[in-house]
C-alpha cells in the first residue's frame, strides 16, 4: 500500500530508525507528552497517524477532529505520548474545540508542542503560532503540506523562519511521510533539552497595553518564580478570562 522507500534522513545513522517504535494507543508509562496543535485542515491528524501508526480518521474539511485523540510512539527507548488537539484558528475565543486546545496547552503542560501549519497559507496560520509561542517555551513548527506549497511555487526559507520564530522548523509532507523522521528527531532533541528555544513574543502591541501586561506579568513572576508564561496569563487576565483567574486561585496554573 505505502511504499516504504527510505528517505536520505531515514537511512542516516543519526536518525536511528531502529530506535522508532509506533505504539498506537498504548499510552502508559510515558516519558514525554507531546501536543499537536494547529489550524483546522492543515493535516494534524495525518501527522498524528504518521507518528503513532494509528489511523485517526482524516478528511479535507475544517473541524474534523472534535475531541482529543491520544497515541504514542517510542524513540530511542523513550516513550512519547501524542495528543492530537482540535484545529483552531486562534486561542482567544470561547468555542468548545478552542477551549480544549487552549486548556491542554496551558494546563496539560505538554513537554513539547508541535504546531502544524499549512506551508502555502503560512501568514494566516502564524496567528495561532504566535499565540502558542506566548504560552509555551518548547515548540517546533511542522511546516506541513510542503508538496502543495511547492506545486504553488511558494518557497520558504526555513532557516530565516526558524530564526524569526525562535523555534526549530521542520518542513514535512505528512501524507507521503516526508519529513516525519526529521520531525521525530527534532521533538526528541527538544524534549531532552538538546535544543533551546527563544520563542518570538508578540511585539506590535500599543504601549499602554504592553505596559499593563508588563505590570501584571512582573507581579505574577514575583509571586510564582517558576512561571514561564506570565505574559500570556497577564493578557488573559486583562481579557477577563474567568477560567484563568480560577486556575490562579487554585494554583493549578503553576502546579
Amino acid at each position: 500500500m505505502e511504499k516504504n522507500t527510505k528517505t536520505a534522513c531515514e537511512a542516516c545513522a543519526h536518525f536511528n530508525p531502529e530506535g522508532l517504535k509506533k505504539l498506537g494507543i498504548k499510552t502508559d508509562k510515558i516519558d514525554f507528552v507531546i501536543a499537536l496543535a494547529g489550524n483546522p485542515n492543515t493535516g494534524k491528524s495525518t501527522v498524528f497517524n504518521a507518528l503513532t501508526g494509528l489511523r485517526q480518521h482524516t478528511g479535507n474539511w475544517p473541524g474534523k477532529t472534535v475531541r482529543r485523540a491520544e497515541g504514542a510512539y517510542e524513540y530511542n527507548q523513550q516513550k512519547y505520548k501524542m495528543v492530537d488537539l482540535p484545529g483552531t484558528y486562534s486561542l482567544l475565543s470561547t468555542s468548545e474545540d478552542e477551549e480544549v486546545a487552549r486548556n491542554f496547552i496551558l494546563f496539560g503542560k505538554p513537554t513539547v508542542t508541535v504546531i502544524v501549519v499549512d506551508a502555502s497559507r503560512l501568514e494566516r496560520n502564524l496567528n495561532l503560532v504566535l499565540q502558542i509561542l506566548e504560552i509555551t517555551n518548547k515548540a517546533v513548527l511542522c511546516l506541513n503540506l510542503m508538496d502543495e506549497a511547492e506545486r504553488n511555487e511558494i518557497k520558504i526559507d526555513t532557516r530565516i523562519l526558524a530564526k524569526d520564530l525562535g523555534i526549530p522548523v521542520v518542513p514535512t509532507s505528512a501524507r507521503s511521510q516526508k519529513g516525519i523522521p526529521e520531525l521525530i528527531k527534532t521533538i526528541s532533541e527538544l524534549a531532552n533539552n538538546k535544543i533551546q528555544c527563544k520563542p518570538h513574543k508578540i511585539k506590535n502591541i500599543p504601549k499602554n497595553i504592553e505596559k499593563a501586561v508588563q505590570e501584571i506579568s512582573t507581579a505574577l513572576k514575583k509571586e510564582f518564580p517558576t512561571i514561564t508564561n506570565s505574559r500570556w496569563i497577564a493578557i488573559r487576565m486583562l481579557e477577563g478570562d474567568t477560567q484563568i483567574i480560577e486556575a490562579l486561585k487554585t494554583g493549578e496554573i503553576v502546579a
Binding site: E153, I202, P206, I235, E239
Partner: peptide, 29 residues
Amino acid sequence: QIGDELHDNLAEGIYADASKIVEGAVTKG
C-alpha cells in the same frame, strides 16, 4: 483603563508580526 480595545489591538499586533515574518521568509512564484 485599557477598555475593550485589547482584543483588537492584540489581534492587530499578531497580524503585523506575522506579515513581517512572512515577508522575510516566504517568496511566492
